[in-house]
Simulated scan of single mutants.
Amino acid sequence: MGLPGAELQALADSLVAAGEVPGAVVGVTDGRETWLGSAGADGPGGTALATDAVFRISSMTKPLAAVLTLRLVERGVLDLQAPVERWLPELAGQRVVRRLAGPVDDTVPAEQAVTVEDLLLMRLGFGFAFEVESCPVAAEAAQAGLGLGPPKPSEVMLDPDRWIARFGELPLMEQPGRYWRYELAYAVLGVLLARASGVELPELFRRELLEPLGMSDTGFAVPEHARDRLVQSFAGSDLFDAAATSDWLVPPVFPHAGGGLVSTAGDYLRFVSALLNGELLRPDLAAAMVTDHLTAEQRSGSSAQTFLDGGGWGYGVQVVGTRYGWGGGLGTLWYSRDGVGAVLMTQVLPPSPAVVSAFVDTVETWPSAAASGHTA
């Protein structure tokens, strides 16, 4: 049995026909073969989407950042249990607000240090606070330009050193390690990766992943040769980021490890294929990446209830049974299950529940690579 391209093509066609998205690119790999397809157009009345269209993948950046972190762990550059203040002294002595909705200056000491693993697992103690109507420390973070709004590069105009210094001036929302809270941990992680490696984050991504895997259309800014393939981005029916004047056409001041990349379906499947084939990490770290590490309490917070929908979290990926992967808030999705990985690339913010559920249902229904005679 071959790859389930027909199922994905039918999915893309149905989403376009239902008006959920103006266009979509889909793809699947078993680590050996890859199939790509497309449907619809680059916006209402636009040109037909090609399979090599460039998308803003936002939070699908996180799995790549997690792999980079684990590669540095493998080399002994980082230790998962080490306090992050070893590389980020700006965060030494951060306190914790007494109440999420309380004053920023009403704080208590942190009971434990934030570790590298806390960043991977988003247990930093800072992020989106959905459980309160007003969160003064979140408001202060937004006013400080730390980027808690729409995922546009121009929303954060602080370089990494200034960004981490500003963040270090704020207290945390809760004790480190208590809850899974989306998503500022990966912004901190990006600064940490550059500091620990001594290499700026875009160059680190290029050296470790993008160049070795042949991901030539992927980066924190749209590569020059791919500019005419960048699609329009929409918030509902409104234009969010025009391709001709996109925020992603120039290198960002703050390269965001949690959501800064652009990529194509084919490029991302090269990364997915490398994960399936065990090319990126030693076996124990590869297994740990796709294992749920959260306790019941850690997944009981508002962020987990909003984003994980009953699932768990590994290193940079959601874990639900044998399925793992993650999506991007601008309309992209990736999941792998039992040796087969698939992507759905759209560019409508946010991806609707119908889009997400249709993609997940499709992934859950096809045979595994082993059952179809493919091994990876």
Rank of each mutant, 00 (worst) to 15 (best):
C135E: 10
S154L: 12
D118K: 02
D159W: 14
F126M: 03
P153V: 15
Q175A: 08
I164C: 04
A142H: 09
P176I: 09
G125C: 01
L120C: 04
E155I: 07
F130N: 05
P176T: 09
S154T: 12
P151G: 13
M122V: 01
L170H: 05
V156R: 12
G147Y: 03
P151S: 15
D161I: 01
L124C: 05
L121E: 09
D118C: 06
K152E: 12
A144E: 10
S134W: 15
G145D: 10
F167S: 02
S154A: 15
D161G: 08
L146M: 11
P153N: 15
L121I: 01
L158H: 10
M157F: 09
P160D: 14
P153H: 15
A142E: 13
F128S: 06
S154V: 09
L172M: 03
V137N: 08
P171V: 12
G127P: 02
L124F: 14
A139W: 07
P136M: 15
A138T: 07
L119D: 04
L172K: 02
A144Q: 12
D159A: 13
V137C: 08
Q143V: 04
F126W: 10
P160T: 13
A141M: 09
E140A: 13
P151T: 15
A141R: 12
Q175Y: 00
G147V: 11
A141F: 07
R166W: 05
P150L: 15
P171L: 11
A129R: 00
L158G: 06
F126Y: 12
E140I: 06
C135Y: 06
A142R: 14
L119Q: 06
L146G: 04
L146W: 10
R166Q: 11
C135W: 04
R123W: 03
L170K: 08
L148Y: 08
F128G: 02
W163F: 14
F128Y: 14
L148E: 02
D118H: 14
G149E: 15
E133H: 08
L172V: 03
V137T: 09
E174T: 08
P176H: 12
M173A: 11
L121P: 00
P176V: 01
E140V: 05
P160V: 14
A142C: 03
V137A: 11
E133V: 04
A129S: 11
A142D: 08
A139G: 06
D118E: 02
P160E: 13
P160L: 14
V156I: 15
A141Y: 11
Q143W: 11
A139N: 09
A139H: 10
P171F: 07
L124D: 02
G127C: 02
L120E: 05
R162P: 00
G127K: 11
A141D: 05
Q143N: 07
G168C: 06
R162N: 09
K152F: 12
